[in-house]
Design a binder for these strands. Sequence first.
DNA 1: TAAAAAAGTGTAATCTGTCAACTTAGTTAT
DNA 2: ATAACTAAGTTGACAGATTACACTTTTTTA
Lengths: 198, 198
Amino acid sequence: MSEPTMGRRERKKAATRQAIADAALRLFLERGYDHVSIRDVAEAADVSVTTVFKHFSGKEALVFDQEESMDAGLVAAVRERPAGGGVLDALKEHVLRTWLPVAQHPQRVEFNRLVDSTPALRAYAERMWVRHAGTLAAAIAGEFGVEHDNLACAALARFVLDAPALAQGRRDHRSAIEEIFEILANGWQPPHRPAPGT
Amino acid sequence: MSEPTMGRRERKKAATRQAIADAALRLFLERGYDHVSIRDVAEAADVSVTTVFKHFSGKEALVFDQEESMDAGLVAAVRERPAGGGVLDALKEHVLRTWLPVAQHPQRVEFNRLVDSTPALRAYAERMWVRHAGTLAAAIAGEFGVEHDNLACAALARFVLDAPALAQGRRDHRSAIEEIFEILANGWQPPHRPAPGT
DNA sequence: TAAAAAAGTGTAATCTGTCAACTTAGTTAT
DNA sequence: ATAACTAAGTTGACAGATTACACTTTTTTA
């Protein structure tokens, strides 16, 4: 799907965008986010500052080059879920499939450290998920034939999209996600005391 | 507690802060958040730009002058809850008591419209609540004698603090909050179709 | 091939936020 | 009361992010 659909123009555009994103990530990892200016990035990618802003909406967006439209994925997960399966299970599987690999990729350890240690990026990353809450809520509501802004659906969407942020930084991402979805499915129960001596 | 504790100095400082906040809110409501610069605010309050930043951490903070440390209130709600009562109920009551009056105050209609129509302020308001998730999570965990970062407690804290954002913009704030806590207590259930013809 | 469309450039401007050195006024100890 | 101290505020300069604008180059297309 790449060769005939993209003319020279779009190919060059994509290349420029990629060059900017690569240069940005490299510099950020080298010097830290706050010690790299947009000008630095532009020069490293050999483009002008204005070009950077034509490709990215702001400095934070330079870091999250890839994870863009997961709207489609979320909606598909809900709509094309296995017959007879619940929406909750479908969303759990989707989160496990799409988020786990990214979060656990060993080449991303330094990337995650960069994000974690930069307040602006932490905030951006959190909002990145929650920003899709509206779309997901509408998709869920559509499945049940209720108003697109049905409160229960909006709440579920929001809670589900909180899951990655909550699981972030836990030892076992997978079981963390499962525990969160367990709460959403059956309600919150007071935790029991851990075995003494741990 | 106000007269003897505050000398002239602190009184003047508080007055300056209030003058800045008042000028800011007035201008924001008049012209819209994005069409007012910090310089405008400073001039309207007859102080220098740097003074504004000495009192407020940033432009958004000018709008949320009042609602600052609710950490203490959240922790108290959990710790001093009625004997035998569940944490969930205590938190629900606390949200209803502290958030409802503010959100419904009729004098705040234009204020809410300002926040709602300004993306930067929307984001700030949302984070304002979620920012206390760590404190609340630790308080809940403390009540049950588990590790301070217990996942179930962190998840509950987060979900509870999502409630105001979710209830915002609904017709009936109170029942919205109650519906959200119902989900947290008993799990999410698919919504039923609304009566046709509404 | 010429016009339209898109990508990119350079400049200048605005705005947020920070910094350092200075002034002023309130507080405190003598 | 007065000198020394301290916190609040001022001023001016500055860096970085972001936008607007007018211009050039390249690709596409009629």
